[in-house]
Design a protein around this nucleic acid. Structure first.
Lengths: 348, 348
DNA sequence: CCTAGACTTGGAAACGTTTCCAATTTCGTT
DNA sequence: AACGAAATTGGAAACGTTTCCAAGTCTAGG
């Protein structure tokens, strides 16, 4: 039915091996032969059958990347997810890889889903996000020797570092530096009582960002007061509750840093509901800084000052890194740490 | 390396054909044989190689579904995208299909990307969203005879209806009925001047929803005034601009229906900026109704009354329909129209 | 002009399934 | 008990690549 490599070979008067070499851009093909074969491929409208290739191929394994997302996580309706997937899809396309997406309902389902993805040779490697301090997914992948790249570090790495020369491959945003910038910005503006709305503590980035908060305080010789740190979640409601708790403290913070924009939106509501205003001027105001820089952050009233994570680029990086790992014989690559940028708007 | 069907056959003392039949749940296998083979598969930890299957299979073609999203569309950071993909992924998983995701930059890139997806036998069918009145993607898919299911109707269908017994396969929300409900609700509350913030008119659902607006007015014998209909977009900013335009009309509307929640959020801001309030009581208020029921709609102040689209279920339906089409010899299936529900909160 | 080595090339042998056909067994009827 | 139809089974032949190895063709150095 469809045009195959054999048709091309016959037409171009070469062997099938040669056509295969042309397709895969290998060397050891004389330029004029390559040109002739390429012309025939184009003329016949030939496009290689991905399944046949992936079936036989042993070098560089299957040209597809899996991404598993948890339905109960931030990904649900978060601007995050779309941007990340967009970056991944763009990078994959340029490399002629496919992206396979799968979902899992909740953490108990997660490892099963992961096993399912590794089976049957459907994908060559995995992308992981929302890494946790102790991440069973990573443990499983390591056990199986299955290639992956994570967005975010993990505590598992420490254990592996003793065995492997490199640590695990990851791309991450330096949340510590990001929060440090944010808090320092507030301190420079004269704030001394700064509330901090954290992320769920099992997430790796939660620790990281809390560290940034502590460091900034320490640098300015402000005593760390644990009452100013309240646990948050991934939802707007969590941010609202957390902010409300902060505003009811005896010495009310004059500024708040939230570990996600979505929580910052919730905090805005809480602030307004307490009869106060978000912003930097006046004594009735509470300064507010978010984290992520989702599109809506620029459109709130007032526009939200926030720490920008280049999510799209991270999606690209993760895929590029994974593909390089797959094509270079699974050698673990050095991790990549991205410095986030403080976007100063009107809320702080 | 891995366990193959041949290993299973040898171990279970049957032919490879029998094992294949067990895997595919075909009949013509004696129950006890099936049991024995299944036991061996489990014991050996066998999982079929998807590529080998997809390579050989002619019936029911490739067990993977493609979804192409445009980076410049709503999908960018819309809650929509995540929910839809979630539904698709869940349904696909249950049927043991893969979901392949690809992106394209803009409309000019769209058809190329579509061609690329159809090539190389990577996917068995496509899912389309954001259908347009005149949709080139559908034209292309039809030309190639490539299976697909669309979320949303299209004008192309009319042309095809003359050829095919069934129209094109789609799942859609009855936006006409949805808006009609919304507008009727406002009319019942006494509103006579109702603004309407539309979607870009090339989108099929834009027409549909505008029809609903007209019908509701007609039913209540209110004259249609085209000044109350303003063009919108897919962003919050578009909603804000549109609402502002409506509020500056000589006879200011006392209620507004926006064709998406995101635009409704923009409208809220515009209303507040004009010194008015969103809600139903008092003369200084403007009633507001959105469309979609994204999660945040329940958390705005005041909570947004809106027409709910069951996006998750739509994702599931679309995949189920496509798979049924693929497995039943590409017979076009009857389309499915979903009746949306008006969720009454406090904004109207 | 010769020869070793490097570059090119052809084509057969996988890869792990599904599908087909023919052979065998089972079952219900007469 | 015999018969035919239906159900079950085995196994070879694809599917369209990549990979490997042997063979052929250059190139440059002697």
């Amino acid at each position: 039915m469809a045009v195959t490599i054999v048709d091309v070979a016959r037409y171009a008067q070469v062997g099938v091996g040669t056509v295969s070499r042309v397709i895969n851009g290998a060397n050891h093909v004389r330029p004029e032969t390559r040109l002739r074969v390429e012309a025939v491929m184009h003329e016949l409208g030939f496009h290689p059958n991905a399944h046949a290739g992936n079936l036989k191929r042993t070098r560089g394994s299957v040209r597809a990347i899996g991404y598993l997302f948890a339905a109960d996580q931030r990904t649900l309706s978060d601007p995050f997810f779309s941007r990340l997937v967009l970056g991944m899809a763009d990078a994959a396309r340029e490399l002629d890889y496919d992206i396979h997406i799968a979902s899992c309902k909740d953490p108990s389902d997660e490892l099963n889903a992961l096993e399912r993805m590794m089976r049957g040779n459907r994908i060559g490697g995995m992308v992981l996000t929302d890494t946790r301090v102790e991440d069973e997914r990573i443990t499983l992948l390591q056990q199986r020797g299955f290639p992956f790249v994570a967005f975010g570090r993990t505590g598992n790495m420490l254990a592996s570092q003793t065995n492997a020369p490199h640590s695990l491959p990851y791309v991450d945003v330096d949340g510590c530096a990001g929060v440090r910038q944010a808090v320092s910005h507030l301190i420079a503006a004269g704030h001394r009582h700064i509330g901090f709305i954290a992320l769920p503590m099992q997430l790796m980035c939660a620790q990281d960002r809390l560290d940034g908060y502590r460091q900034a305080l320490k640098q300015a010789r402000i005593r760390f007061n644990e009452r100013y740190v309240v646990p948050g979640g991934l939802t707007e409601a969590a941010g609202e509750d957390a902010a409300q708790a902060l505003l009811q403290l005896p010495t009310r913070p004059s500024a708040i840093v939230a570990c996600s924009d979505v929580m910052a939106f919730g905090a805005m509501r809480a602030i307004q509901r307490c009869g106060m205003r978000v912003g930097t001027h006046g004594r009735n105001h509470v300064a507010l800084i978010g984290f992520d820089d989702v599109p809506m952050a620029a459109h709130t009233t007032p526009p939200l000052t926030t720490v920008r994570q280049p999510i799209y680029d991270i999606g690209r990086d993760v895929v590029n890194m994974l593909v390089r790992q797959l094509t270079t014989g699974n050698a673990p690559l050095p991790p990549k740490l991205i410095l986030p940028e403080l976007i100063i708007r009107e809320s702080a």
